[in-house]
Simulated assay, not measured.
Amino acid sequence: MKSFRRHAASVNAGSMADIAFLLLIFFLVTTTISADKGILRQLPSICESGDCVADIAERNLLRVRVNEQQQIMIEDRVVKLTEIK
């Protein structure tokens, strides 16, 4: 009876690193990264006269304060920095 030896299958891992590197470069080059545009708000015009009081509706005001303990207060309520968007 002949005995057959089975050899363990091996995979050449050297070329796998090259392929992974090429795929990484491909996805980095082809991916578009969106930039933050910030908050788009129209600022009031510059007041050149001495009387610069404008009537602003109460619903358009947001009161933000920082107290002596360096806590942020929005509308008289203390909030954490992570809660602000």
Score class of each variant (00 low, 15 high):
39 I>Q: 07
7 H>G: 09
48 E>N: 11
13 A>G: 09
52 C>S: 04
38 G>M: 03
68 E>A: 10
17 A>P: 04
78 V>N: 06
5 R>Q: 14
18 D>M: 11
57 A>I: 05
60 N>T: 05
6 R>F: 09
8 A>C: 04
55 D>N: 02
23 L>W: 00
43 L>M: 08
10 S>A: 14
77 R>K: 14
14 G>C: 05
58 E>I: 06
25 I>E: 03
22 L>F: 11
16 M>K: 11
20 A>Q: 11
44 P>W: 01
42 Q>A: 13
76 D>E: 00
29 V>G: 05
58 E>P: 04
28 L>W: 06
26 F>L: 08
45 S>P: 06
67 N>E: 05
68 E>W: 07
71 Q>H: 06
7 H>P: 00
44 P>T: 03
11 V>I: 10
8 A>L: 10
52 C>A: 00
9 A>E: 12
65 R>K: 15
30 T>V: 06
1 M>F: 08
82 T>M: 03
82 T>Q: 10
82 T>V: 09
13 A>Q: 12
51 D>Q: 07
17 A>I: 14
41 R>D: 13
29 V>Y: 02
28 L>S: 07
30 T>F: 05
76 D>I: 00
18 D>K: 13
9 A>L: 15
6 R>A: 10
37 K>A: 12
27 F>H: 02
29 V>D: 07
41 R>C: 13
18 D>I: 13
10 S>T: 15
62 L>V: 03
59 R>W: 08
23 L>S: 06
26 F>I: 03
54 A>H: 05
6 R>Y: 09
10 S>C: 13
62 L>R: 00
38 G>W: 06
74 I>R: 02
33 I>R: 10
58 E>D: 09
85 K>F: 07
15 S>E: 12
21 F>I: 09
59 R>K: 15
73 M>C: 09
85 K>I: 08
26 F>M: 07
45 S>V: 00
48 E>I: 04
65 R>T: 09
17 A>M: 11
42 Q>R: 13
1 M>V: 02
21 F>A: 15
72 I>A: 01
24 L>I: 10
74 I>N: 00
50 G>I: 12
35 A>M: 12
27 F>C: 01
39 I>G: 03
46 I>T: 00
27 F>E: 05
73 M>N: 08
15 S>I: 15
54 A>K: 07
40 L>F: 11
64 V>M: 01
